[in-house]
């Protein structure tokens, strides 16, 4: 605003300058003010949008088809929702693991260029916040709260060099193999859409909500 005042004072020095100022500055500003475009064009925050002046719908975009939703809706949830048909056991998964996973994660899931997956030396304990060095003991068996996550992630993103290339049976098998190696299921446990959500992960109840909230307290 102070810049505007300085400009106005300068422009008022002579009549000619004032008229130039009117054409160049005031006229466009008043035209803008008369424009029917709402100030919603550049709201700083979503809550600043004067939604009441908006139509109920902009009628932009199109209805999603059932088939395009099914094609992309691959997420698997803790209750087992989203799991496909198929099944696997530690035995069937061992072959897939050896050929598709072991090169990066180690023959027994001990880790390599990629994350360590297997290991229960901390048992059912959860010591990761006690020392920096204990973070290296994070595995599926000691840290992952949900077995569904293992299917979801393996299915969508693994193996690293050919993501999404495993069949459902292969993913079920790898999941079974890794749960077995982490002493969570037995060797003959059949993992499928009906059984995966029944698997109880050791770290299931270790996670707590974020209690940081700013203010003078460091949390």
């Amino acid at each position: 605003m102070s810049g505007f005042s300085r400009l106005a004072g300068f422009a008022a020095c002579t009549r000619r300058r004032w008229s130039i100022f009117f054409v160049l500055v005031i006229l466009p500003v008043s035209l803008l003010a008369c424009d029917s475009q709402p100030e919603s064009i550049n709201p700083g925050r979503a809550s600043d949008i004067p939604a009441t002046s908006w139509p109920a719908s902009f009628d932009i975009g199109r209805k999603a088809t059932r088939s395009e939703i099914v094609a992309w809706d691959i997420d698997v949830n803790p209750d087992g929702q989203g799991l496909p048909e198929g099944s696997g056991t530690a035995t069937s998964g061992a072959k897939t693991y050896a050929s598709k996973c072991a090169a990066c994660h180690g023959a027994d899931g001990e880790g390599g260029v990629a994350d360590r997956l297997v290991g229960r030396e901390v048992g059912a304990d959860f010591p990761f916040g006690r020392s920096y060095s204990s973070l290296s003991k994070k595995t599926i068996g000691t840290y992952w709260p949900y077995a569904s996550t293992l299917f979801d992630y393996t299915n969508r993103a693994m193996p690293q060099d050919a993501p999404g290339s495993l069949t459902s049976d292969e993913v079920y098998g790898v999941v079974a193999f890794l749960l077995f190696k982490n002493d969570i299921i037995s060797g003959d446990f059949v993992v499928n859409a009906d059984t995966l959500h029944l698997v109880e992960m050791p770290a299931r109840n270790r996670f707590v909500e974020d209690d940081r909230h700013g203010s003078s307290e460091v949390r």
């Binding site: 990761f128 916040g129 993103a157 909500e209 209690d211």
Partner: peptide
């Protein structure tokens, strides 16, 4: 949805044997 990146990673272990999620 409990994806990998909000459970096995991007969670914060605390000294009381829990981990902060979300």
């Amino acid at each position: 949805f409990m994806s990998r990146e909000e459970t096995s990673h991007y969670t914060d272990p605390l000294p009381d044997d829990t981990a902060r999620i979300f």
